[in-house]
Nucleic acid binder design. Structure first.
Length: 204
DNA sequence: AAGCTGAGCAACCGCACCATA
DNA sequence: CTATGGTGCGGTTGCTCAGCT
């Protein structure tokens, strides 16, 4: 139903603009099949050439994105498990918004999906929990300020190792300390201790 | 039932980096 | 050394849909 609406929109887009121009917007089922079929028989290669050779009126960039984020056979979509969420949160705490790097630690997940997941789910929860935490601090001054030293401890990753099994999947390169010069490099930045101090996240 | 709103997601954009001619 | 083209990445946009009033 929704897809049909998309196709109708695409038809309108195509009809209203010059046919020769490179297409943008949602991919049609037909385009998907062409791309899948072409890559199945010829491999990925140079994307600009691929787009031309396959007869797709798309940029190589668009084809690459569609293939990597959606059409690849090993792409897993939806249903991010709690374990994956924990891993995403921990790796984000280590590396910041290095989505492609994070995605490499989650087989079948794409950087785009993780990025979207972070922005729509985790970031919202983090903010919500931070808000709750601030409210608690404002209303209960009896709580000792132990968090400062804990928050600083993120720099030595060893003290903050999560204890879920997926951690064994991470290779040595992946575990190297992140090269953060300062937190201002990312508005989204938060430390792993922030996470461990606020979990479980389902605090709503 | 209709309108509104926010969440979720696919896709695009712009920039940086790299390879090669 | 420089220009050019291809690729990868992070940020952002815009569309769709479900839930709410």
């Amino acid at each position: 139903m929704g897809e049909e609406a998309n196709y109708n929109n695409m038809d309108r887009m195509i009809n209203s603009s010059q046919e020769a121009e490179v297409r943008k917007g949602p991919w049609t089922l037909e385009e998907d099949l062409i791309l899948i079929n072409y890559i199945t028989h010829h491999g990925e290669g140079v994307w600009n050439n691929l787009a031309r050779s396959a007869g797709l009126n798309r940029t190589g960039k668009s084809c690459r994105l569609r293939w990597l984020n959606y059409l690849r056979p090993d792409v897993r979509r939806g249903n991010i498990t709690p374990e994956e969420q924990m891993l995403i949160m921990d790796l984000h705490a280590r590396w910041g918004n290095r989505w492609s790097k994070i995605a490499r630690q989650l087989p079948g997940r794409t950087d785009n999906e993780i990025k979207n997941y972070w922005r729509t789910r985790i970031q919202k929860k983090v903010k919500h929990c931070e808000h709750d935490y601030q409210n608690v601090m404002l209303t209960d001054e009896a709580i000792p300020s132990t968090s400062t030293s804990q928050l600083n401890s993120v720099e030595d990753g060893a003290s903050t190792q999560p204890n879920y099994p997926e951690y064994n999947m991470i290779d040595a390169e992946a575990l190297e300390a992140p090269q953060f010069s300062s937190h201002e490099s990312s508005d989204n930045f938060w430390t792993v201790d922030d996470f461990w101090s606020m979990q479980p996240l389902n605090c709503d």
